[in-house]
Design a protein around this nucleic acid. Sequence first.
DNA 1: CGTTCCCTTGAGACCGCTCAAAGACCGTGG
DNA 2: CCACGGTCTTTGAGCGGTCTCAAGGGAACG
Lengths: 258, 258
Amino acid sequence: MTHAIEAVTTDRAPAGGTTSCHHCPLRAMPVFKHRCDEEIDFIQRFKAGERKAGAGVRILEENQRDTHLFTVLTGWVFRYRTLEGDRRQIINFGLPGDFLGLQATLDDTMSHGIETLTDVTLCQFERDQLWQLYGEHPRLAYDVTWLAAQEERTFEEQLLTLGQRSAFERIAYLLWHLYDRGRHVGLVHDNAIELPIRQQHIADTLGLSLVHTNKTLQKIREDGAIEIRERCLHVIDEERLIRHGRVERALWQRRPLL
Amino acid sequence: MTHAIEAVTTDRAPAGGTTSCHHCPLRAMPVFKHRCDEEIDFIQRFKAGERKAGAGVRILEENQRDTHLFTVLTGWVFRYRTLEGDRRQIINFGLPGDFLGLQATLDDTMSHGIETLTDVTLCQFERDQLWQLYGEHPRLAYDVTWLAAQEERTFEEQLLTLGQRSAFERIAYLLWHLYDRGRHVGLVHDNAIELPIRQQHIADTLGLSLVHTNKTLQKIREDGAIEIRERCLHVIDEERLIRHGRVERALWQRRPLL
DNA sequence: CGTTCCCTTGAGACCGCTCAAAGACCGTGG
DNA sequence: CCACGGTCTTTGAGCGGTCTCAAGGGAACG
């Protein structure tokens, strides 16, 4: 296990000159729930600014206090926890539209770290204003809970993966999962998606060794359901990939965006 | 993998003659957050009744629609998901004070099944009244989210377990985890807790085979940190158990009870 | 006193791990 | 333009943790 990229100082963009929530490119996408102007106004005020960071940057440390919540505007991040310093478990990946930081609600202490995979732009919110949101906008409050519940489902699925799927199934499942998520936020073109991850990330997500991940990945490729060229995952035969990954459920509804 | 116990018809207790929220024995415990009378009044009205069931009963089926939320009043339950009908992954256990059913918020379809381990009493709530809760009691709404976030933390820890811990570490971790949770709700006496689970449950929780679970469990027992007699887990040397399980965090705060 | 469930034990196979090293790719500096 | 170092991917070899199959023993229960 290597954490190849060392933490780098992060840059903070000034609050001004940021994307307007009313003109948020994500909000226009069909995956996201429609919001009335008043709600968007509130979100706009709730938004404390934007934060940009380069690829391979640790934007939140484990066990560190942080009072922010984030929505990924552009780019990829991942959340992870480590055991004894050298065993890293990737909890999940954050793509555009994903909401991060709720887990720290307890006491502002992050139970996990967050690191960027690409250059990213994050919408930043102040956690203590969440109170205000609960008081004034029950509908938004409900959405926050909805998002947390949705995340729980994803975790249940991931527990099922780690507990019951073989290495081959795990990798097939993960690739399809990322492909499917990417598809919903417009990252898929011609059945292909750019995956800004290394094999080590796959290994750390699935509880496998790097070597075994590599060998198993090759088997999936040989099988012909997918191709990987130049950082891009091409899904040649989605049905077959779904079967390999023992994918069972693909329930998608419009989801809220904050 | 065997689902030894077949589903049995569940009994529904009439809504009347149930435990009053004001005199709820759980609420008096120091783990649970204090609530003002008005909030308890609301919870009392929110409560649609109690439901009792015997041990080994499936109270919710996977992929079944159900419009209820539950708080475990007495007894143990567990949540699980299955893959291809015969690979069962136990997601987590529900002890007194635990709140269940939020995950179905999406569309009322349960992503998992729930089965009892002992005789249980559940406080039952109607999901559609959750809306009312969000509108009238932002503080309770916040608590619901808090609980969801807390559950997420538990899942993160479990992902770490399945992905990074060895069989020996997993079992030690799980035993300590259950012991610690039980301790907070008064189930531990003389450093011992009654564990109403079979080795098969441990195996299905940790992604191990029954045989290997048995052999590994014996190693932990031989080591002397714990003893298991008559369904009871006796923790002889907690520090050692914690070390074996690579337990890192034991952050506990008062938590809300619904 | 048989049945059933659960725990235990043994033997052998295999999946996934570790160690080790070579090849591929890429940005950098000479 | 090439040499170089760093990161990532690929390969091979061998070990061992965990699995499967199979069977026996014990406790609870009708």
